[in-house]
Computed example of a mutant assay.
Amino acid sequence: MRSVRGMSILAALLVLASALGYREGSLLTREGGAPQHQAVIHKVEDEYGPPYSPWSSSESTSLSSSTPPQARSTADREVEHLQKSDASRKIAYLTFDDGPSSHTPRILDILQRQHVQATFFVIGKERETDKRMYRRIVEEGHVLGNHTYSHDYSRIYRSTEAFQRDVERLNMLLEEQTGVKPDILRFPGGSNNHISWKAGGRRIMASIAREMSKQGIAYFDWNVSSADAAAVTLDKQSIVQAVKQNSAHKDRIIVLMHDMDKKTTTVEALPEIITFLKREGYEFKGLDKEESFRCQFLQPPA
């Protein structure tokens, strides 16, 4: 009888221990297991591609469900923190095409006051005032990009060789004036423009894009248009509204604006655009060749 009672007590203790162990194991799995969602940054090809999604279980850094939090290395925790913080960042790349112009000093003044970095896709100009603007752009920490020397569609899109010559002519001028030889460019009209067909045929853009890529030159289009090219001088509020609408639901934006003498309202709209984007949580960066976010309308064949 005493033996049976002892066995019953032992069985009860085993059941209790098992239950406690299960609960402890469950708690361990919840705290130390793989997170349900791990943030990662996806390369966005262009604004017409699949919608940006910051969540991907296949690309996340997962942890064993049996690994307690205290067993995770400092490196593991730092990697996870960086991935989450990078995915939550919103970045705006302001870009200005066709300068320098009479408005470049004002644009630079605004950017300096707002502590904002931008990218200037410039063309070739030989006046001393324009050369000073090339230098000031670089001296104030902005990025110089090549937008061809002549910006003459009939000349640059005649052939791949003609385009290369025009790009190199501007690179030589910029390197001479600033010490910087740009390795990024924006095609006049964008990489998928059809105006080029008249000069070089329907395949000219693919041919040029492929050659530029082979030479290690990265080209950038845009996924937010300010619409300031819709008219010679578009009204200020239309420009501001275009940026607001076109940037909606995007975490990485490349904003197209123009730095030209007739684009007075673009300069007037710039402070309001920057204020809006800051309020929406964007930080500002200049484009660079290694940047993972690259908007390209045309993907050249290999």
Results as ranks from 00 to 15, higher is better:
residue 75 A to Y: 14
residue 105 P to W: 10
residue 212 M to A: 06
residue 272 E to N: 08
residue 113 R to I: 07
residue 71 A to W: 14
residue 8 S to D: 07
residue 148 T to Q: 12
residue 196 S to A: 15
residue 300 P to R: 09
residue 117 Q to G: 06
residue 14 L to Q: 01
residue 256 L to K: 05
residue 140 E to P: 00
residue 21 G to R: 00
residue 4 V to R: 10
residue 261 D to R: 00
residue 23 R to H: 13
residue 89 R to N: 00
residue 162 A to M: 10
residue 76 D to E: 15
residue 123 I to W: 03
residue 271 P to I: 02
residue 33 G to P: 05
residue 56 S to R: 03
residue 61 T to G: 06
residue 87 A to T: 00
residue 35 P to W: 11
residue 174 L to F: 03
residue 56 S to Y: 02
residue 17 A to I: 04
residue 114 Q to D: 15
residue 201 G to W: 12
residue 162 A to Y: 01
residue 8 S to V: 12
residue 1 M to P: 10
residue 21 G to L: 00
residue 275 T to R: 15
residue 127 R to D: 03
residue 85 S to K: 14
residue 62 S to R: 12
residue 6 G to Y: 13
residue 274 I to H: 04
residue 55 W to A: 02
residue 57 S to A: 12
residue 231 A to W: 00
residue 273 I to P: 08
residue 251 D to H: 13
residue 226 S to R: 09
residue 140 E to H: 07
residue 6 G to D: 10
residue 116 V to T: 09
residue 139 E to A: 13
residue 178 T to L: 11
residue 162 A to V: 07
residue 222 W to A: 12
residue 82 L to K: 11
residue 42 H to T: 07
residue 48 Y to M: 06
residue 294 R to Q: 11
residue 45 E to M: 12
residue 231 A to H: 11
residue 208 I to E: 06
residue 143 V to K: 12
residue 159 S to V: 04
residue 104 T to W: 11
residue 255 V to E: 06
residue 136 R to Y: 02
residue 82 L to Q: 10
residue 214 K to Q: 13
residue 200 G to K: 14
residue 222 W to K: 08
residue 13 L to E: 01
residue 117 Q to L: 11
residue 152 D to W: 04
residue 236 K to L: 05
residue 169 R to I: 00
